[in-house]
Computed example of a mutant assay.
Amino acid sequence: MIKVLHIVGRMNKGGTETMLMNIYRNINREKLQFDFLVHGDGDGYYDNEIRKLGGNIIKINRPKEVGLKESVEQISDVIRNNGPYQAVHAHTLFNSGIAMIAAKKNNIDIRISHAHTTLNNEEGLKRKIYIAIMRYFINKNSTKLLACSKKAGIYMFGKKAISNKKYMYFQNLIDYKNIFSYSPKFVEEFKRDNNLDESIVIGHIGTFNEAKNQKFLLEIIKFLKGKNCDIKLLLIGDGIMRKELEDIIKEYDISENVILTGIRDDVNNLLHCMDVFVFPSIYEGLGLVLLEAQSAGLPCIISEAIQDEADLKVGLFNRLNLSDGVEAWANKILELKDTPRLSSKDIKEALRENEYTTEQCISKLLKIYEV
């Protein structure tokens, strides 16, 4: 059996982690197995499922807790004690440089650094120096540089690197078949139980943090409520900003207009409860949930931070700048609320044309792993 070590922060229900699980569930695990090296002591959302599928969750310290040298040693210990590994595949932004040093030190032939975002919020002088050093180690020690979008690749590897033969655009994948097989009965009952039948339902899925910009969504709801619109917002997810968002909801007096669902396993059903999907990210690698929203036939209103690669080119992408302001975004929602749903046939064809199907992505990844 061939084994690959994925290096992540923690296997919570974020875009990168969900993509990895979509791959993991669909590979032939009798021939290829994944282990997941995670940082910190906490448990991840997907940990139990990973163990049931035959993978290992291996925990080490965060680099900022122990330093560069000790981080390299801890990863090296994992490689020696849990391998042999055909490949080491790092998803930890610039900390991937540490993983690549360890992988090369331990004679791993296939060493992959994977870019999933276009920015982070730590751009002080110390951080810039760290980025420059880690980018050097990433480009020097990786045998393959993958990115979910061109801008993500430039951000992590630098402009020169994306013309290197090691660089490859790797499409994210979603479980689109699950989205097509939603339950109409669930949708009917959920809308009835939450008084959504007569409302305009805005949807958003994402970790509650500054980058996803849920505060802007609450401003939109406040504005539309002030215009006497029957508006509801489904906020699917959780995160460090939950308490702050709850306080804003109370301050804006929009408690009856916002439904905080928490982290859900039935996103395929919830997408079909929405009229418009709104995604006002401040920065974003790709936006995996946008592929899911389009697969459900939803019109999407997106910020300038969203990459072109996330567009299935079926007429559902509507781009606005955050600087256009709340009123412009609210008006676009009202304009799109009655958009007819596309057929699943048209969406499937778009997914195939853009190489976002599970089969296409796994085939490409198996070639990278040389399986």
Rank of each mutant, 00 (worst) to 15 (best):
L37D: 02
D109C: 02
R80T: 08
L119I: 09
K105H: 09
I58P: 02
D35K: 10
S113Q: 11
A115R: 04
N95Q: 08
F36A: 14
A103M: 06
L32A: 09
I60L: 03
H89S: 12
V78P: 04
D77W: 02
D41R: 15
N48D: 12
H114I: 14
H89I: 14
A99I: 03
L68K: 10
H39T: 09
N95Y: 07
Q74E: 12
K52C: 12
I101Q: 02
R25N: 09
A103H: 01
G97S: 07
T92G: 03
V88I: 14
K105M: 08
I108F: 01
I58V: 09
R51P: 00
I60R: 03
I60G: 01
T118M: 10
K69L: 09
H39M: 15
N81L: 13
E70C: 00
K59L: 11
F36P: 13
F36H: 14
K31E: 14
H114A: 14
L119E: 10
Y46A: 11
V72L: 09
N121R: 15
V38C: 13
A87F: 04
E49F: 10
R62E: 06
I101D: 00
N61H: 15
K104A: 10
F94N: 03
I57L: 07
D47I: 12
A115L: 02
G40F: 04
G83F: 02
L53M: 15
K31H: 12
I57T: 09
E65F: 12
E122T: 15
A102N: 07
T92F: 04
E122P: 12
H91L: 06
E122A: 15
I112V: 15
I57W: 01
D77T: 11
I50C: 10
L37F: 05
A102T: 05
E123T: 05
G83E: 02
F94R: 05
D109S: 08
N56V: 04
A90M: 06
L53E: 07
I79S: 03
S96N: 10
V72C: 11
N106Y: 01
N106S: 07
K105D: 06
F34W: 10
I57F: 04
S113G: 13
I112F: 02
K31I: 12
I60W: 01
R62M: 11
D43E: 13
V66K: 14
N61M: 08
G42V: 13
E73M: 12
D41N: 15
V38G: 09
V88D: 00
I110W: 01
R51M: 02
G55L: 05
L32P: 11
G67F: 05
N56I: 02
L32I: 14
A102V: 02
T92D: 01
F36G: 13
G55V: 02
K105I: 03
Y45W: 12
Y85D: 03
I112M: 06
A90T: 14
Q74Y: 00
I58K: 08
M100T: 07
E70D: 00
Q33M: 11
N82K: 07
G55N: 03
K31N: 15
I79N: 01
L32S: 11
L53S: 12
E123P: 00
D77E: 08
D35Y: 06
S71L: 08
A103W: 00
N121T: 13
S96E: 01
R29M: 14
G67D: 06
G40M: 06
L68I: 12
L68Q: 03
D41M: 13
N82Y: 13
